[in-house]
Amino acid sequence: MVATVLHEIPLQGGDVTDGVVRIADTVRRPICRSSPAVHALLRHLEAVGFDGAPRLVGMDATGREIITFVPGTAGLTVHSVTDEALGSLAVLLRRFHDATEGFPLAGHRWEGGSNDDDVPEVIGHCDLTPENVIFQGAEPVALIDFDLARPTTRAFDVVTTLRHWAPIADPVDRHPLLRHVDVGARLRLFCEAYDLPPRTRRRLLPLARLRFGRSYEVMRARAAEGGGWARLWEDGAGERIRRAAAWLDTHEDELHAHLV
């Protein structure tokens, strides 16, 4: 009998997790301390019928988690930066948050990270960078890489998402496709598509400032542990956070005008 040889295709794009590969229609990923919580979350999402996340298959013989491969494209493209795509992403994030409402907010061990001071409402993805959203054409169809998911507020996860997608960043650090966009208009568009209440919208910019400060400290501490976080820090992640916070200070009034 001839043994089947599984062909592993390395998957790039993530900033922190090493060793992610595709085998046929599955993805194999190293586990981390939050994996049991993430696995419980993925099982919950499947049980409630949320179709915007990979399915958990199990574990392989080497101890890696097995999840389904979601076909499509990650990262920023001319299709994923449109206003229509941004609105669709807001709807997908809202659907995800709604789907987590029945999931226990206590009793699981999550990765630490910056967070809101308000009482958690949902499980947030907390890392919706362009590399963690799968598009099929111009439509965002799935969120991936839930390693940093944790209990939080809707507003905090919205701010974390808008940090990358509005984006709330100094133009020098933005992707060329987003360098000259109207950030305030994109903030408003996302909030309207998500159906974020006006009082919550008014919290977003102060919450963004809080997030910048705490993210800086969290990333600096994790960088000291080495690995992907150290590479991010060495690549200037701390400086980019500082510049984003300074840009927000300068433009807060004009951004706020779009959120009232």
Rank of each mutant, 00 (worst) to 15 (best):
P140H: 08
A142I: 15
G213M: 03
T152I: 07
V91L: 10
D25Q: 15
D83G: 14
G102M: 07
T161G: 06
V119K: 11
E46T: 15
P167E: 00
A244T: 07
F135G: 01
T62M: 15
L259N: 04
V20K: 05
G227S: 14
D253R: 14
W229M: 15
P167H: 04
T82C: 01
L189R: 11
L41R: 10
A223H: 15
L143P: 04
A90K: 00
H108A: 02
F190D: 00
T73A: 08
F69G: 00
A99P: 01
P54M: 07
P36W: 11
V20P: 01
L259H: 11
E8C: 12
P171D: 02
R64N: 12
D116H: 11
L45E: 08
F69N: 00
D147K: 04
A142S: 14
L105A: 03
H175A: 05
V133Y: 06
L207S: 04
P30G: 00
M59E: 14
R209A: 07
A99W: 01
L89G: 00
T160G: 07
E239L: 10
P54D: 03
D195W: 05
L89V: 04
G226M: 11
I66P: 00
F156P: 05
E217I: 14
F135P: 03
G238A: 03
A245D: 05
D195Q: 15
G238F: 01
R163S: 02
T82N: 04
L248K: 10
F190Y: 08
A224W: 03
D98F: 05
T153D: 06
D98N: 14
L178G: 07
S35H: 05
P198A: 11
G52H: 10
E252D: 10
T26R: 13
A155Q: 13
G228E: 05
D127F: 02
N132L: 01
A221K: 07
G75D: 01
G72K: 09
H164N: 11
D182C: 15
A221W: 11
A61L: 15
D118Y: 14
T26K: 08
A3H: 12
E254W: 09
I241N: 01
A149S: 14
D253Q: 12
F146M: 03
G102N: 13
P176F: 00
D98T: 12
V218K: 09
H108T: 03
A193M: 02
T4D: 13
V181A: 04
A24M: 08
M1A: 10
D127K: 00
S215W: 09
L93C: 03
S80G: 08
R94N: 06
G228T: 15
L162D: 01
D182L: 07
A24I: 03
